[in-house]
Write a protein that binds this DNA or RNA. Structure first.
Lengths: 201, 201
DNA sequence: GTCTATATACAGATAGAC
DNA sequence: GTCTATCTGTATATAGAC
């Protein structure tokens, strides 16, 4: 496609369907979201939704892909900090991300808990990979801190990283159960403090 | 009813329907479980299911009630232990409970994450109450340990308890994501160790 | 591409015989 | 209590005009 080519006007409609679907699926789940609802809220006909996406299941996959787009880990702003500050930064980044994406996070967590539609190993795989990435990043920082002498010589990078990630996940659930952001902010602050107290030599 | 009266034979059928429904709902969720499926797997007709429970929604509520029956906290075997041992016992109890009820726990967690059917505030209320109970129990033990001098004078009972509960919830999610029981057992062991190291004076 | 109209399937629920 | 047969609504998906 040449640069600055006029956008295919149908992209607008397709896009509208996709974002509408992503919103409804993440709010109500797969089974409870009817194509007719997606069509109505996107101001198009049911038939057009299917013309663009073939089937409900494929529409769902496309919508989930859209939902997952902002899920990535930014490692840039770790540079130039010492290990304790890097740990704090990673914990904060996780929490900020969850705050900004709470609806889709809730949705994805729901997907993990009950493999909604069968052919969704892709989503689980991607999420699992992100978790592994994040945990390994934490573990690397801890290991590095151990070698540099800033952290205790007997820290267990993998286990400590796993425990921090678990605590963050738990705060997440707490957050969804009580809906009280103040409480979870306090908890995250306390998690940072106690984690560092434990790690630092 | 007189003692040892012969059991109404229809209880067998009703019971069978209920346990079948509880199993299917907790495995597949509300929307994805059809009455016809419950009927088939309980070897009865759809009409009979509705004769016993009036509607799908009421069947669901009965099934959830059944699912939650084993959810309670046993405080008896805390007696006669010192505070560190009580903390360990509570953490172990949580983990054992999750192991024994993993399917329904997964189901209930899913319910929390997306309020499946509307009139289900009762379930969430009950679960929330159990969490509060468990957390307060932990906090009480920590506070008691602080006063008895076994724990640091500057522990923060509510926050420390919350952090332990959060970590346990996180291990739970980890458990559901990776399905590797060995890993989560290690994590729980490590959680016990680091929690106590932090608390003990 | 987008629509209306329709096919097809299956859900939850009811009626009525036994 | 338990069944078969049926009603009614709504879901996904298709056909075909524009």
């Amino acid at each position: 496609m040449p640069p600055n080519a006029p956008v295919d006007p149908s992209q607008h409609t397709r896009e509208k369907i996709l974002t509408t679907a992503a919103r409804l699926f993440s709010a109500n789940g797969y089974e409870s979201t009817a194509l007719s609802q997606v069509a109505r809220e996107a101001n198009v006909s049911k038939a057009l939704v299917l013309w663009h996406f073939d089937s409900k299941s494929k529409l769902f996959q496309a919508a989930v892909g859209r939902t997952l787009e902002p899920y990535f880990i930014d490692t840039e702003d770790l540079k130039g900090r010492d290990e304790p500050a890097q740990i704090e930064r990673l914990i904060d980044a996780f929490y900020e991300f969850v705050q900004e994406n709470r609806y889709s996070v809730r949705f994805v967590l729901g997907l993990i808990l009950r493999g909604e539609p069968q052919p969704d190993n892709e989503v689980l795989g991607r999420i699992g990979e992100l978790y592994r990435l994040f945990r390994n990043l934490l573990a690397d920082v801890i290991e590095h801190g151990r070698q540099s002498g800033r952290f205790h010589p007997d820290v267990r990078p993998q286990l400590d990283a796993s425990l921090i990630v678990a605590a963050l996940d738990g705060v997440l659930i707490e957050h969804f159960m009580s809906e009280d952001p103040a409480t979870s902010a306090d908890l995250v602050a306390y998690l940072k403090r106690t984690s560092l107290e434990r790690l630092i030599a």
